[in-house]
């Protein structure tokens, strides 16, 4: 009886905490790009950028808007992979966000499958949503526990959804990044600029295919682009192979090959580089898609 009593108490505590956390995460000021996207509906955002940190740290939406005169949003998420881009694309549709063009960053992520922990963690408060539930079910063997065991999802992802983040949400603390822009700058340059791309490219990427078909079905235009790498990157010929598979591709891989000052590290621009790059891509958008 003693054990049973404590077991029931524990269960009740878990349900209460789960309900409390979920309510706070869903109702607080958005602090992640996923929660921001799920907080807006039926908006017109002309240009949306999907990608990983190589979008997150590269595209200043404010510059894009200033040059193109159109509203832009950076939805790049650190560590995100193609599966995550596809989910964001589906969420854009689900939230009835009206877009003109969706720019999808592509590079060595073409060779990768799976999803990032960061994206998955930000999905947890919304796991009861059918689209998100399907996404997690297909990618996480723990799905049943995440969905049905009370508070389990918040314990497993405590690093991102633990008490610290819960408290920040509770007090409506603003995120470090302005989510209506989505750009997260990096500053300075590390000493040793080095990076390596794969030698071989995967024969195909099913997610790219699925994204294209989803976009076609929903009358959305996808534009693939490759962000800059520093000139010390090995196997840059990978991008040539990529260009053969993804066409058309806005290829910016080597535009700053001789400008180390623009890089935080070999695969990420610093703020200075991001400003120049944002200007460049905005001008290309004007010349290619606005005339």
């Amino acid at each position: 009886m003693y054990i049973l009593r404590w077991f029931l108490i524990l269960l009740v505590l878990l349900y209460v905490l789960d309900a409390l956390y979920t309510w706070v995460y869903k109702n607080a000021l958005p602090r992640t790009k996923v929660s921001y996207l799920l907080s807006i509906q039926e908006e017109k955002i002309d240009y949306v950028f999907l990608g990983s940190s190589r979008t997150n740290n590269f595209i200043d939406s404010k510059i894009i808007t200033e040059i193109t005169g159109k509203k832009a949003l950076n939805l790049g998420i650190q560590g995100a992979k193609m599966d995550d881009y596809y989910l964001m694309l589906q969420l854009l549709k689900k939230q009835r966000i009206n877009t003109d063009l969706i720019f999808v960053q592509i590079d060595d992520v073409f060779n990768m499958r799976g999803s990032s922990d960061l994206v998955k963690s930000s999905l947890m408060p919304y796991i009861q949503d059918s689209l998100i539930a399907r996404y997690v079910r297909e990618r996480d063997s723990d799905f049943w526990k995440l969905k049905h065991l009370p508070f389990y999802r918040y314990m497993v992802y405590d690093y991102k959804l633990g008490f610290r983040e819960f408290f920040s949400n509770l007090i409506q603390k603003k995120p470090r990044v302005d989510l209506s822009n989505g750009y997260a700058p990096k500053y300075g340059t590390v000493e040793d600029l080095k990076a390596k791309l794969p030698k071989q490219i995967a024969s195909k990427n099913d997610v790219v295919k699925a994204m294209r078909s989803f976009a076609k079905k929903n009358n959305t235009q996808l534009i693939f682009f490759t962000s800059p790498y520093c000139g010390h990157t090995k196997n840059l010929f990978f991008i040539d192979s990529l260009q053969e598979k993804i066409s058309p591709l806005m290829n910016y891989a080597e535009i700053f090959a001789h400008d180390d000052q623009y890089f935080y590290n070999c695969t990420h621009l610093n703020n200075k580089g991001a400003q120049v790059f944002s200007k460049r891509i905005a001008e290309d958008i004007v010349s290619k898609y606005q005339n």
Binding site: I9, L10, L13, L17, M155, V156, Y157, D158, Y159, G162
Partner: peptide, 13 residues
């Protein structure tokens, strides 16, 4: 203690 364990305990890392 149970509540604190759930709130502040490190489960992921």
């Amino acid at each position: 203690a149970l509540v604190l364990l759930m709130l502040f305990g490190v489960f992921s890392d």
